[in-house]
Design a binder for these strands. Structure first.
Lengths: 120, 120
DNA sequence: ATAACTGCTTACTTAAGGGTAAGTACTTGT
DNA sequence: ACAAGTACTTACCCTTAAGTAAGCAGTTAT
């Protein structure tokens, strides 16, 4: 995947923030460019890899798989594969991921509000 | 501040996501490395520039002022300056920023839960 | 006189994240 | 025979975000 330099100031600050600020801790798990979008897609139920790819315009396969892997590593999303040809792989929330849903919904709700407010 | 190339794929995708996904829209306003931490600090009340600097270990003045400006541009935080010497500048939530607080609290609450869960 | 405080600004460098484009293995449809 | 579908992997390059380090203007404290 992507190598991270262990001794960089950036990395040090990241660790510091994650330990000092709960909001920052969460952002590190669900923030970034693609993770919010992937999570949003999964909120409407389990999805196949190719379904996600088609549902998210502009995402590359590299980004999709990379973030799915990170979400798995953080135990927010699980992968279920059936050993058939063509392969059938489904991604869905874990129990921990499910517990995030109210938070994601609160975020989305605020987002919608702001959209509507900007329309007026 | 920082120049953004208009025609980059990254920028195009960013716009796309912000229009297609409410979660992504919100993340663009409150995500990143420093914004969550700054917002978290402001949740406990208005703060001076130097208070924020001291409260956030590791942040540079450049990052602090840059993100405060972005938060102002997004109308989440307001700046109040008194024309005295030494200068007295206070940052606090706007009305819009206040409306974000329940969301930030929900995020922080989930973060605390996960911390505790990891401790067991 | 000089250090320290206030709230910034600027130019330069580095590192992380993302994009491009190709390839893999195996099968069904035409 | 060849394209198209499945779910990935890999190598290389470019853009953005962040870090480093300095400076400014005006005042009080030592």
């Amino acid at each position: 995947m992507t190598q991270i330099k262990e001794n960089s100031t950036w990395n040090f600050n990241k660790e510091l923030s994650m330990q000092a600020c709960p909001v920052s801790f969460v952002m590190n798990k669900i923030g970034g460019h693609w993770k919010p979008i992937i999570l949003y897609q999964l909120m409407s139920g389990p999805k196949r890899y190719s379904e996600l790819r088609r549902a998210i315009p502009g995402i590359t396969e590299k980004m999709l798989i990379q973030h799915l892997k990170q979400l798995q590593a953080d135990d927010l999303v699980s992968r279920k594969a059936e050993a058939v040809v063509p392969p059938y792989v489904v991604y869905q929330f874990t129990t921990k991921g499910e517990s995030l849903q109210p938070v994601l919904k609160a975020i989305a709700a605020w987002g919608y509000e702001q959209w509507n407010a900007e329309m007026i």
